[in-house]
Simulated assay, not measured.
Amino acid sequence: MINLHDIRYVRLGTRDIEGASRYAQTILGLQLVRRENGRVYFRSDSRDHSVCYFDGDPQDHTVAFEVTSPAQLDAAAAQLEALHMDVRRGTADENEERRVFDHIVFHDPSGNRIELVLRPQASSRRYHGTRDAGIDAFSHVGLRTTNPIRDEAFWTTVCNARVSDRIGDAPLLRIDEVHHKIALFPSEYPGVQHVNFQVGSIDDLMRSYYFLLEQRVPIRFGPGRHPTSNAMFLYFAGPDGMIYEYSTGVRMIHPEEETTHVPRQFPFGPEGFCTWGAKPDIAEFSV
């Protein structure tokens, strides 16, 4: 089994790298790390970077997860190849781009590009965003799935993900104590559906809500509270059709609960997404 230690970064293609960079700093509140060769890197915590925008196809998305040893990386490559999945080892130049010691690349059954990285660099400096959004960490992604049942099986049998709860057929998957690091949403095509950042408190979330309204950034969903993770949330529009989310107060499922935890089933409708009555555009989570 592939032991995913933590989520590390997303790489997002864009046709307007300067516009995406302005958004990341002035709206999201991320910290610019560096620019190099058509790529711009941003921090949200102690990681070297959590978001990389690059000059390319806006539908070109990558999500990276960390593994903790060379043996685990080699075993992951062998396991994926045994399943007849195409696996490619990263080059030295690609490792340098990502600030990792080594990595492999593959696609999940829906076609989402996944990188498994070894020894990703941490930053020696404290994170401080351009805007005080109260961000604590890059926390999870929503991934599009063309077959939720098939992909749930992949992430929970080939990898170490566990189902915390389900909304309709959409599973929320944890790889550590956090309620979910991966959410699989039904779609007709692959890609990252949303990118989540944890903020320190409901005050941070609500300050951003009014800030986003003032900046005329479209609010996609919220403020609200998820009945699944118990997190308070706010979803809003980003460049190239990407959705970003701030949330706070996410539920933890501790090791002593692993043997007794039973995933709950919620309806794939407004009541399955928010306990307060906020109503999402369900199409945002299912196309």
Rank of each mutant, 00 (worst) to 15 (best):
N3P: 01
D6R: 15
I7A: 03
I7G: 08
R11C: 05
R11L: 03
G13E: 04
G19L: 07
R22C: 09
Y23A: 06
T26F: 11
T26L: 14
L28Y: 01
L28D: 00
L32N: 12
R35G: 04
N37L: 13
G38W: 05
S44G: 15
Y53N: 05
D55Q: 13
D55E: 13
D55Y: 02
T62D: 00
T62V: 14
P70Q: 09
Q72I: 02
D74R: 12
D74H: 04
A75G: 09
A76E: 02
L83F: 04
L83K: 14
M85L: 15
D86P: 00
D86S: 15
D86F: 06
V87E: 00
V87R: 10
V87I: 11
G90N: 04
T91A: 11
T91V: 13
D93F: 13
N95F: 00
E97T: 13
R99L: 13
R99H: 15
R99P: 00
F101L: 07
H103Y: 14
D108E: 12
D108Q: 14
D108P: 05
P109N: 00
N112M: 07
R119T: 04
P120E: 03
P120K: 05
A122M: 08
A122V: 04
S124W: 03
Y127T: 02
G129D: 11
T130R: 02
T130D: 10
D132N: 12
I135F: 08
A137N: 14
F138Y: 14
S139R: 09
G142M: 05
R144L: 11
T145F: 07
I149A: 13
I149L: 13
A153Y: 12
A153F: 09
T156H: 09
V158C: 04
C159Y: 01
N160H: 07
R162T: 06
V163E: 07
D165H: 02
D165Y: 02
R166V: 06
R166H: 14
A170T: 09
P171I: 02
E177D: 11
K181H: 08
K181Q: 13
I182R: 00
A183W: 00
S187H: 13
E188Q: 13
V192R: 01
V199R: 01
V199W: 00
G200A: 15
S201C: 07
D203M: 07
L205W: 01
L205G: 04
R207T: 01
S208L: 06
Y209C: 05
L213V: 04
E214Q: 11
Q215V: 00
P218T: 08
P227V: 10
S229V: 05
A231W: 01
Y235R: 03
D240A: 14
G241I: 08
G241A: 06
E257S: 15
E258T: 08
V262G: 01
V262A: 02
V262N: 01
R264T: 03
F268L: 09
T275N: 01
G277L: 10
F285V: 03
